[in-house]
Write a protein that binds this DNA or RNA. Sequence first.
DNA 1: CGCAGCCTTGACCATTATCAACGCTGGTGG
DNA 2: CCACCAGCGTTGATAATGGTCAAGGCTGCG
Lengths: 251, 251
Amino acid sequence: MVVIQSPVAANSDAPGGPCALCGARRLSVCSALVDDGLNRLARIADDVALGAGAALMREGDPANHLFSITSGAVRVYKLLPDGRRQIVGFLYPGDFLGFGAGDRYAFSAEALEPVTACRFRKAEYSRLVRELPDLEGALLERAGSELAAAQEQMLLLGRKTAQERLASFLLDTSGRQHRAGGAPGRLRLAMTRAEIADYLGLTTETVSRITSRLKVSGLIRLLSLSEIAILRPDALQAIARGETGAEAAAG
Amino acid sequence: MVVIQSPVAANSDAPGGPCALCGARRLSVCSALVDDGLNRLARIADDVALGAGAALMREGDPANHLFSITSGAVRVYKLLPDGRRQIVGFLYPGDFLGFGAGDRYAFSAEALEPVTACRFRKAEYSRLVRELPDLEGALLERAGSELAAAQEQMLLLGRKTAQERLASFLLDTSGRQHRAGGAPGRLRLAMTRAEIADYLGLTTETVSRITSRLKVSGLIRLLSLSEIAILRPDALQAIARGETGAEAAAG
DNA sequence: CGCAGCCTTGACCATTATCAACGCTGGTGG
DNA sequence: CCACCAGCGTTGATAATGGTCAAGGCTGCG
């Protein structure tokens, strides 16, 4: 059975933002479902807390749940039999995971750092849709933008150079964090170089080399291993878009 | 205003299968909407016919329509400013195009060969959803499987070798055509080598070379430039999945 | 303070891209 | 009906981007 209040849910000052699913009904946090007296809803959702490295799901598992990340960051990836890994996305608070996945998950997902998430039982999906009539439309919209992002990533993986890939990644991550309330022109990397490499279809060494090159060229600055300042967003954009001649600027 | 019956719609023996959208209401072909007396529906959809190379939409255009392909094949792609192209998908009868795209299309789409499609006005989307209550769920399910396919393609583009990419493509295309009623172990390529290359993140030359290698190794056979027989599906699968040692089998 | 894991840098190598030439094929017009 | 031509496909030679292998340097935690 579903745990209605996990330790995290009970802790009202737990880190993290609103659950994007519950948010469709103007509730701020999943744990608020119980306080709100909406017991029908509370019964089908529970909050979960995961330590760094813990798995939310594994490729091939029965797709029983739908997740909404409320804090932390998650890596979603696929593996080849020999161990080659492709990270298909990094998820942050507000992102969904697991919808429309058929009856088995087609990917694995693990916490990059401590994560809290709101978890829904898919078996209760029809009930959930009844409770939240806007849900389906919201999910569809979300799926559409995920699909657009996936297509952008295909362009990156299929046709961009290593430098263009890294520039795209830095701008994308920085923009996302800015929209989430972070300082503009700044970004914090929740993942290792190896994970960035597996996301961009490169190796750790190449990610490291290109980072150095961008640093030496004065386009970025490393505040720490995991914090980067973007000094020339315009130049970085030109590279990321693959504009002819942009390479020269980063020589 | 929307044309209720285009020449194609009026031609009841036009090529092509059912429209997947209308199909949600158990109507066999879009043109049947009118015959069925469902005028409210008929007003928001029309059939279109396109010659080879004609554009269904261009990246950046206002996203006013939603398409359901009923015959022919379509290439969907994104471009970089210097002309590099990534084909993000090939569409066949039964596939959707344009849903959840925001207010502007994020990709271009062109007919690979003569195409017929059922076109819906997105402005009438809410009305369409009222008429077809199952539509949203069906679209969501479709979006989910598209997303899974996109992730599989990211794995291909980011981590597979040229030979693994081509093997994956051949099996995928063959499987799809088999499910659509074609002969098993056979496929017909509606696209050029350059288009396959732009789909797999390779060049024409590499596609051509690998095709030759697979042919010489006895895994496939070229019946014509655009028709291929798969002689050893097992071996091709092993390569496509990236199984260690599978390379050897293809010399 | 030391150690383990991650990151960086360097030297070399391999896969695939690029550049180039040639061949096939299907359509067209004489 | 045949010959030509344009476009596509194949093959070869060479080059370059990024991968591999290896060594050393941070850095943050115990």
